[in-house]
């Protein structure tokens, strides 16, 4: 299935820990190429934890794995159609626009992406 969603790059404690271990290490690469999707969006798209999906922004595309986004049990978190992934080379690849509207800051937390998945094993390896 394909859908358009909003990708918001962010930080996690896990990513912070992994970057201390080294940005060229697997833990960091794994953390920065796993996208968090709300459970109801996962269900609608037929995604399971660890499934590979494709994210497309303009002419750029990346293949990442996905997992359900943890939401606070204390509150009603109503946000759907938004996905989250820690900053890193993968989110950079999807930031196709270097325009900063005269501020120096690109729209780093507001990437419109097309999400496609789950991908078959051979497709995600390629």
């Amino acid at each position: 299935m394909t859908e358009t969603m909003l990708l918001v790059p962010m930080r996690t404690a896990k990513q912070g820990v992994a970057l201390n271990q080294g940005k060229l290490k697997d833990a960091y690469k794994r953390e920065t190429s796993t996208v968090e999707i709300k459970q109801e969006d996962m269900d609608r798209l037929g995604l399971k934890t660890g499934d590979r999906i494709r994210l497309r922004a303009g002419t750029e595309e990346v293949v990442v794995s996905c997992k359900p986004r943890k939401v606070s049990k204390k509150v009603q978190d109503t946000a759907t159609g938004i996905i989250f992934m820690p900053y890193g080379p993968t989110t950079s690849a999807l930031m196709t626009d270097g325009d900063t509207a005269g501020t120096g800051m690109p729209d780093s937390k507001h990437l419109i992406v097309e999400i496609e998945g789950p991908l078959a094993q051979e497709e995600s390896d390629g």
Binding site: V8, V71, K74, V75, D77, I82
Partner: peptide, 16 residues
């Protein structure tokens, strides 16, 4: 925030 986070867990009020 636009989403709930681990910080939401320590908050008295969450505004989405």
């Amino acid at each position: 925030d636009v989403r709930s986070t681990t910080t939401t867990n320590i908050a008295d009020v969450f505004v989405q």
